[in-house]
């Protein structure tokens, strides 16, 4: 468990270093996730301690969002000023995203499975 947690932290550290060094436009932990994914593919499996640490952290994922979410209180003015715009954008865009993604995947997915079975 501790070993697994250390692996996660080291992946994040290397990710942060790569982002800093190459001045990449995305967050360090994302690069850390890519590094871990590649490492797991090379390893061909997930070591027990890494699985334990990952599942432990991910089972409390919702709690980890709370401190940042409380930060909404700092933006009361912006939310009050753009409130209707924000709500409209969130509802319409989420509906549109669900519609487009679901429609495309629903049309294409059965074909892909069929081809796979034939091939």
């Amino acid at each position: 468990m501790l070993y697994g947690f250390l692996v996660l932290l080291i992946c994040q550290l290397v990710g942060e270093l790569i982002v800093r060094y190459l001045d990449l436009p995305f967050p360090g932990p994302v690069v850390g996730m890519a590094i871990l994914l590649i490492a797991l593919m090379i390893n061909g499996g997930v070591p027990d301690s890494i699985r334990q640490a990952s599942e432990g952290l991910l089972s409390y994922l919702a709690l980890l969002f709370v401190p940042a979410g409380v930060g909404l209180m700092v933006h009361f003015q912006l939310i009050a000023a753009d409130g209707l715009t924000i709500l409209t954008a969130l509802v319409l865009s989420t509906a549109l995203t669900l519609l487009v993604t679901g429609f495309i995947l629903n049309r294409m997915a059965p074909d892909a499975i069929e081809k796979d079975q034939k091939g």
Partner: peptide
């Protein structure tokens, strides 16, 4: 947030941990 940052910090390793279900 001065105190809550210790919970917030864990989001970093949790993001890295997403590689496991992905794998």
């Amino acid at each position: 947030f001065e105190g809550a940052q210790f919970i917030h910090f864990l989001l970093g390793p949790a993001t890295v941990a997403l590689a496991v279900p992905l794998f």
